[in-house]
């Protein structure tokens, strides 16, 4: 499903270039759930961004579903994500000008699905927000916004679900509910899940846990 070989990531900061990832190799099999843990600044989120094709590795190879992401241009990567990947962020990243329903429908619209809104409505119902379809993100609580983000990530039945600290901005109760939902969705669709988290108990729910430190797998 995912194949990373000697992946490097160097970013240019104000104080000069910084090596974020320093040679990561790993593979994730289909249907597996993987937790990436480690201290702040260890490169977990960056690694997830590289896997999603949102960050371009400065060295090595990133393979997903048999495709080499490092050889694709920006638009090819965007097309690849359609239907193949769903991404969930710590800060939800909903589009503030769209309602909950419209936010969930966006990936289907991009993919040219005829019944984008019908399917989005079902998915929104699945995360328990069927009654809040017409609400804008600013009218929803943090937990609700993350549920919308989950619905948006899963609505196109992606083969790969990537979640970057999905409960990081939520309280314990909401965090637990979101995690239940994430695993339910993953189980329902049979997707592969890679998740960055600080919480040991969440990581423990995954099939495998990898620890990062200073840009390397520990």
């Amino acid at each position: 499903m995912l194949e990373l070989q000697d992946v490097h990531l160097r970013l240019n900061g104000n104080a000069g270039p910084v090596d974020i990832l320093r040679g990561i190799s790993l593979s994730v099999t289909s249907g597996e759930s993987l937790a990436l843990v480690g201290p702040s600044g260890s490169g977990k989120s960056s690694l997830l961004m590289v896997m999603a094709g949102l960050e371009r590795a400065t060295g090595g190879r990133v393979g997903a579903l048999g495709q080499d992401l490092t050889q694709m241009d920006e638009d090819a990567l965007a097309r690849f994500r359609r239907g193949n990947m769903g991404v969930v962020f710590q800060s939800f990243h909903l589009i503030p000008t769209l309602t909950a329903l419209e936010n969930v429908a966006v990936p289907l619209e991009i993919a040219g699905e005829a019944d984008a809104f019908g399917r989005a409505r079902v998915e929104l119902g699945r995360v328990g927000l069927g009654s809040r379809a017409g609400h804008y993100p600013s009218q929803l609580s943090g937990g609700e916004q993350q549920r919308v983000a989950l619905a948006r990530a899963s609505v196109s039945r992606p083969k790969l679900l990537l979640a970057d600290e999905p409960t990081g901005n939520l309280d314990t109760a909401n965090g637990a509910a979101i995690m239940d939902l994430l695993f339910d969705l993953r189980d329902a669709h049979g997707a592969t899940l890679v998740m960055v988290t600080h919480a040991a108990e969440l990581a423990a729910r995954c099939d495998r846990v990898l620890k990062l430190a200073d840009g390397l797998l520990a």
């Binding site: 920006e74 965007a78 239907g83 966006v106 990936p107």
Partner: peptide, 9 residues
């Protein structure tokens, strides 16, 4: 966000 969701530039 749109590009994360697969929209081309």
């Amino acid at each position: 966000i749109l590009r994360v969701l697969g929209a081309s530039r």
